[in-house]
Structure formats: C-alpha cells, structure tokens
C-alpha cells in the first residue's frame, strides 16, 4: 500500500521536472561532436582534399560500403577519382574514421538522412566533401609524410633533415 502511494507521489513530482522531450524537428537536440552520424570528407588547412585514397577506410568497413579509386595529380599528390559510400548499408560504426591516417573521413553529428528512395542513399564524392577541416584542425598529412607531393619539398618537413648529398664524403 505504501509503495503504491510512494510511486504515485514520485510520478506526480515529475510534472514539475525539466522536460527531456523536445519538439523535434522544430527544435534540434544537442549532439556531441563525436556523435557518429553522416560521414563527410574534409579538407586540409590549405583547402585541398585531405583524402589520399589509401583505401584503409574501405578495408576497415565491416559492411564493405565504401568504394574508391586512387588517382594522382601532376605533382604526385594522390586523391580519390571517385569516392562512394552506400549509406543504405552503412552502420555508422566509425571504423573508417578510426582507420583514416589523414583525418579526411569523419563522422558528424548529423543523422537526418532519411530518403524515400534507397538509391538516393548512395553518396558520391561531391556529396561527401565539405569545405572545411571538420573536427580536426591544422593537420596536413603531406607536411609530415616523406614524399614530395607539391606541399613541401624533400627535407623541408617538420621532422626532416635536408636531402643527403650522395657525393659528399664528410662523416
């Protein structure tokens, strides 16, 4: 008897609590930046595509919903010729983001991707590429990599000695 009355009392008190329910979609919920929603491709601080088409996201994807083809620009910079994610298969596990060595592929707090037609859930590079750096600022893979892809010359990287002079006999 007491427990019933106590339950009624607590339920009654909830009428004066702050409301958890919001009026979606008029009002948007707060989602933390690390929420795993719609996948995007970001750009590096210079505004060039970050993706180097290394295929690691595709390999990490447990549902195999990422497909791309690497191609090289004139200066040897590698980028995807096409980059396709089939969101009708995606499980938003975030493995692709974890695998990405350049912070190019990122999951965002956007989850509003509903479509009436399943075909519209196939995103190509132009749908994925955003114009900013996304969550990770200031990182440029080619500044720390060894190759010269038009970003920095050999030996000019942050952690590099100038190129070896093969003809020198100095110790």
């Amino acid at each position: 008897m007491f427990s019933i009355l106590r339950s009624l009392w607590y339920t009654f008190l909830h009428a004066f609590h702050k409301r958890e329910t919001i009026l979606y979609p008029e009002e948007k919920p707060y989602l933390p930046p690390r929420y795993r929603g719609r996948i995007i491709l970001s750009r590096d601080p210079d505004g060039i595509e970050r993706c180097v088409a290394c295929y690691l996201c595709a390999a990490a994807c447990p549902v195999d919903c990422i497909s791309l083809q690497a191609i090289e620009g004139e200066n040897g910079r590698r980028y995807p010729a096409f980059f396709r994610i089939n969101f009708s298969r995606c499980i938003f596990c975030g493995y692709c983001e974890e695998a990405c060595p350049t912070y190019a592929i990122q999951l965002t707090p956007d989850f509003e991707m509903g479509e009436y037609n399943r075909q519209n859930l196939v995103y190509e590079k132009e749908h994925l590429l955003i114009s900013g750096e996304g969550k990770y600022h200031g990182y440029d893979f080619y500044k720390v990599a060894g190759i010269d892809a038009g970003v920095k010359e050999k030996g000019e990287g942050a952690n590099e000695q100038p190129p070896v002079d093969v003809k020198s006999l100095m110790p």
Partner: peptide, 16 residues
C-alpha cells in the same frame, strides 16, 4: 578475405 567495397562498387548503377 579483406576484399573491400562489395556493397558500393556498383551502387552508383543500382543500390541493390
């Protein structure tokens, strides 16, 4: 065993 992209390779033509 690591072959990737099975569900995306031809998704641009048909999502099935």
């Amino acid at each position: 065993i690591r072959f990737s992209g099975r569900t995306a390779i031809s998704a641009n033509i048909d999502v099935s």
